[in-house]
């Protein structure tokens, strides 16, 4: 039994990579059908995040008495990355639960439903990148070549979230108290992470940054783009987080794969 389960899990993983066009197409269809009849279409994604990032950025920037030239790009970029992380964490909770009819009606691997959700949010992230471009056009901070490292940072986020989403999705099918828990937790993590505030200005509570995985993940995606130095240790930890998350996901997947169809 256990061996068959592991074998099937490997087959699923292979299929997830080889047949990625299926979940990518499903994700695209999700986005398209949501905005199909609206005039602005998918630009609404950009608009709604943009309004939030810029208005909160302007207001809080004054509260914290900071130079808007540095604060607004910092907040907007962090917010875009955070939105990606938070929506994936939240939608992961229902990605399998809501796919019940699919799981029982087709032979697609379970990982497809999680990847569909992740990819959908990645497409949303791509829309939100426009905000960063607009903010840059306004402030024109200097972009070093190392800004490209942000792409690597983003890729690490994608990998980390793929693993985390599988773990969350599987746990949520079994324990239905977890979805609301994740919702509450992401709210807390938002305030506890260096998104609205900068880690260097923290007077007490450095542990919020030191022991907060989200702080590293946001840093590797955001800081290179802003020309802020990213310590090597931060990169190492981010890579470690991504690898650890995928390893844990593989374990959970192989162990519970065969039970999910019974639980949804």
């Amino acid at each position: 039994m256990a061996e068959a389960s592991t074998e099937r899990a490997w087959a699923d993983l292979r299929s997830t990579v080889e047949n990625s066009r299926i979940w990518r197409a499903l994700a695209l269809a999700d986005i398209r059908s949501k905005y199909r009849l609206s005039t602005f279409g998918t630009l609404w994604i950009t608009l709604s995040t943009g309004v939030m990032a810029i208005s909160i950025g302007l207001i809080y920037g004054q509260f914290f008495g900071q130079d808007l030239r540095t604060y607004l790009p910092y907040f907007a970029t962090g917010m875009v990355v955070w939105t990606f992380i938070a929506s994936v964490a939240n939608e992961a909770t229902t990605s399998l639960i809501n796919s019940g009819t699919w799981i029982k009606g087709s032979s697609l691997p379970l990982s497809f439903y999680v990847m569909r959700m992740l990819q959908r949010n990645f497409l949303i992230l791509l829309h939100n990148l426009i905000i960063i471009v607009l903010v840059w056009l306004y402030f024109r901070w200097s972009l070093p070549a190392s800004a490209l490292l942000s792409l690597l940072g983003l890729a690490l986020n994608y990998v980390f979230l793929a693993g985390a989403a599988v773990v969350i999705a599987f746990l949520c099918v079994r324990y239905r108290d977890i979805p609301p828990m994740v919702g509450a937790l992401t709210q807390f993590v938002f305030f506890a992470s260096p998104i609205m505030w900068e880690a260097e200005r923290l007077k007490v509570g450095q542990f919020l940054v030191t022991f907060n995985p989200v702080a590293y993940l946001i840093a590797v995606a955001r800081d290179p783009l802003l020309g802020r130095p990213v310590p090597l240790l931060t990169w190492i930890i981010a890579v470690g987080l991504a690898a650890g998350s995928v390893a844990l996901a593989a374990h959970v997947y192989a162990r519970y794969r065969n039970r999910i169809a019974y639980w949804v």
């Binding site: 499903l26 059908s33 087709s106």
Partner: peptide, 23 residues
Amino acid sequence: FDIGLGIDAEASGHENIYMRGLI
């Protein structure tokens, strides 16, 4: 079974042929 799985009512017939085919 479930031959209507993944049919998107807002999408055109051709789009649905593509999606259903992939599924």
